[in-house]
Amino acid sequence: MTKRLFAIRFALAAVLAASSAAPAAMAQQAEPAPKAAKLINAGDVLSGELNALRLRGAKKGKRAATYQLTSEPRRLPPPNGLCGLETGPETFQIVTNSDAQAAQLKNFVGKEVSLKVDEVACAQDAGEMSEAVVTKWSVVTKH
């Protein structure tokens, strides 16, 4: 009698496991494969939503004006490659080199902005909060 109850419970557990595994397998097949991202070169325009980040600089903990642009995935030119990602980076840290550049970007926080990228690289330092860093850029105005 014990063997019979064990066999029934075992069969019930096997049926439940099989029925719960089938939808998970179907969901994995239904996900589209990540599409290949376009390559971004010097002089290309990068568009997306601009966010402000709160970071402290290395010198006496002084605040540094730092911004982040969230865009569609873009591949970086060699030798940077993909920054270790399948589709390329989606978040770009915008480095300001002067107070004038910081003031220029301050007006676009929370809005869509287009930047002409002159120099971009993969994030490598611990303080970088984005997947890629744009060090030389200019704002593209719409006429």
Score class of each variant (00 low, 15 high):
residue 95 V to K: 09
residue 99 D to G: 15
residue 58 A to K: 01
residue 122 C to Q: 09
residue 29 Q to H: 14
residue 57 G to Y: 01
residue 82 L to N: 11
residue 18 A to D: 02
residue 111 K to Y: 09
residue 114 S to P: 06
residue 120 V to E: 05
residue 72 E to P: 00
residue 86 E to I: 05
residue 38 K to Q: 13
residue 121 A to S: 13
residue 139 V to C: 06
residue 25 A to Y: 11
residue 41 N to I: 00
residue 59 K to R: 10
residue 95 V to D: 07
residue 127 G to W: 07
residue 88 G to D: 02
residue 92 F to D: 10
residue 68 Q to N: 09
residue 58 A to C: 00
residue 37 A to R: 00
residue 63 R to S: 14
residue 91 T to C: 06
residue 125 D to A: 15
residue 70 T to C: 02
residue 18 A to F: 08
residue 64 A to W: 09
residue 31 E to I: 12
residue 87 T to G: 07
residue 62 K to T: 11
residue 52 A to F: 05
residue 132 A to P: 08
residue 78 P to Q: 14
residue 42 A to Y: 00
residue 115 L to H: 11
residue 19 S to D: 00
residue 84 G to A: 01
residue 3 K to Y: 01
residue 56 R to W: 02
residue 50 L to R: 07
residue 15 V to Q: 02
residue 68 Q to R: 09
residue 120 V to F: 03
residue 106 K to P: 06
residue 55 L to V: 15
residue 59 K to D: 13
residue 137 W to K: 10
residue 116 K to P: 08
residue 111 K to H: 11
residue 119 E to K: 12
residue 18 A to Q: 05
residue 105 L to F: 07
residue 135 T to S: 15
residue 138 S to N: 12
residue 136 K to L: 10
residue 73 P to T: 06
residue 56 R to Y: 01
residue 37 A to N: 01
residue 65 A to W: 12
residue 45 V to L: 04
residue 115 L to W: 06
residue 52 A to R: 15
residue 92 F to Y: 14
residue 38 K to Y: 03
residue 113 V to C: 05
residue 65 A to Y: 14
residue 16 L to E: 03
residue 4 R to M: 11
residue 101 Q to C: 06
residue 101 Q to V: 10
residue 58 A to T: 02
residue 140 V to A: 10
residue 62 K to R: 12
residue 42 A to I: 00
residue 64 A to H: 08
residue 93 Q to D: 04
residue 113 V to Y: 05
residue 42 A to T: 03
residue 29 Q to I: 09
residue 140 V to G: 07
residue 28 Q to W: 15
residue 53 L to G: 03
residue 91 T to V: 09
residue 56 R to P: 02
residue 33 A to Y: 09
residue 67 Y to E: 12
residue 89 P to R: 09
residue 101 Q to A: 11
residue 80 N to H: 15
residue 113 V to D: 08
residue 4 R to G: 01
residue 17 A to W: 00
residue 77 P to T: 07
residue 126 A to I: 12
residue 123 A to M: 04
residue 142 K to Y: 01
residue 135 T to Q: 11
residue 30 A to G: 01
residue 112 E to I: 04
residue 66 T to M: 14
residue 54 R to G: 12
residue 65 A to G: 03
residue 8 I to C: 04
residue 39 L to I: 07
residue 68 Q to Y: 03
residue 3 K to T: 07
residue 90 E to D: 09
